[in-house]
Amino acid sequence: MIKLIISDLDGTLLHNSRHIKPEDQAALHNALASGITVSFASGRMHPEIVHVSNRLGLSAHAVSQNGAFVHTKDHEIILQDIFETSLVRQLAQAAEGTSIYTLLNGPDYYVTTVMNEGYAAIEANLLAPLRVMPHAVEALGSELMCCKVSYQGEMEHLLAFKQELLSTHGDKIDAYISDVRCMDVMPRHVSKGAGIQTLLSYSGIRADETICIGDSFNDISMFGTIPNSFAMSTSHPEVQANAAYVVDSVAEAIAWALQTNAGNIDTKAKHT
């Protein structure tokens, strides 16, 4: 019996940062009407997840910032985690002198030390505020609590930068491509999978009573936690290889859940 649906946002439910397919929205409401609980798990912040939930007209649990925070659908916080101060200060300055843009992630807003055309373009795709804080590096650990650092730029530059960061801080961080022009860096012990385990413990729902849907490398830990895992057919082959099934849409994965609950598991989902 499937009791919980967990969906990633960007590249899974959200397309081009904002568009939600009508069939996916209808499928989520059908799931809720059948008694299934909904949660979103995203690299985005909790206010951004709430924004998406409000657009959909539903209440959902939220695993935000790749598992750094977990909120219930009633906005009760049940998990929060942040970087160690000396480490995040190094990460905040690591891309200086390159073409890569750095966003520091507070609990409810993004931070940059400067504003220019590049950051203005990034801001257009955010659903939470972007604040300019020239003294942000000095404020880390006190005025500014940071749980994720996002780097944005050309993919080839991000991949090279990823290797540089891992060679220096690899025992303390996880770094993965989370979108076409974005790399997220988290404390090593923080992940969507760990955040989801906290949510399952809180809700009393088992992993095998859950499905999860995602499309990127930050979803692999989620796939490792939930046996009924679905990767989007547009995702990287390595991401698909870590999921139990491959689907073309959120609606298709939800159809699998509803048919499973009805005793009919003859679906179109492709097993990896």
Rank of each mutant, 00 (worst) to 15 (best):
D248I: 13
A92R: 12
I36R: 10
G224E: 15
D248F: 11
V111G: 05
G43R: 02
W256V: 11
I6R: 06
T168Y: 01
S142A: 10
E76T: 13
D10E: 02
A241C: 04
L165W: 05
N228A: 09
Y101N: 11
S191Q: 02
S39W: 00
I36M: 13
A121V: 08
G67N: 04
A269R: 08
A124Y: 04
I20F: 08
I49W: 01
K268P: 10
P22A: 09
V114L: 13
P227D: 10
K270P: 07
Y202A: 09
H271V: 15
Q25C: 05
M186Q: 06
H19T: 14
E138K: 15
S64I: 02
M133E: 15
E209K: 11
V247I: 11
S34Y: 04
L28A: 01
S39Q: 00
K148W: 01
K3T: 11
M45N: 01
V63D: 00
S167M: 09
I211D: 05
A124T: 05
T113D: 12
A26G: 02
T113L: 10
L79G: 04
I100P: 05
G97D: 13
M232T: 02
M133Y: 12
I20C: 11
V190W: 01
G214K: 00
F217D: 02
A243G: 06
L87T: 14
S178F: 04
G118W: 05
M222Q: 08
P227M: 09
A241S: 15
E123H: 12
S64C: 03
A251G: 06
G263R: 07
L127G: 05
L58I: 07
Y101S: 12
L158F: 14
E96C: 12
A269P: 11
L127I: 00
K162G: 09
L13D: 09
N228P: 02
L58S: 00
K148H: 00
G57P: 08
A136I: 13
Y110K: 03
D266A: 15
P134T: 05
A124S: 06
F217Y: 12
N116F: 08
C146W: 09
S191M: 03
I220D: 04
S150D: 07
E252M: 15
G106D: 03
G67C: 02
Q163Y: 10
R18W: 02
N105F: 15
I2V: 12
E117W: 06
T98Q: 03
I213P: 00
I6K: 03
P47N: 02
A244N: 14
V239G: 03
S249P: 01
V111M: 05
L4F: 05
S249K: 01
P237M: 07
Q90A: 12
L258Q: 12
S86K: 14
I265L: 14
D24Y: 07
N125R: 10
G224P: 06
S249T: 04
L126S: 00
N66M: 04
R89M: 14
I196T: 12
L258D: 06
L158N: 09
E156H: 15
G263P: 10
K162A: 08
T12V: 00
A194H: 14
A33G: 13
F69S: 04
E143C: 08
C212K: 08
K73V: 13
H51N: 00
T102C: 10
Q80D: 15
G57T: 02
L9Q: 10
D174K: 14
L91D: 09
E123T: 05
D184A: 10
Q259H: 14
H271W: 13
I77S: 08
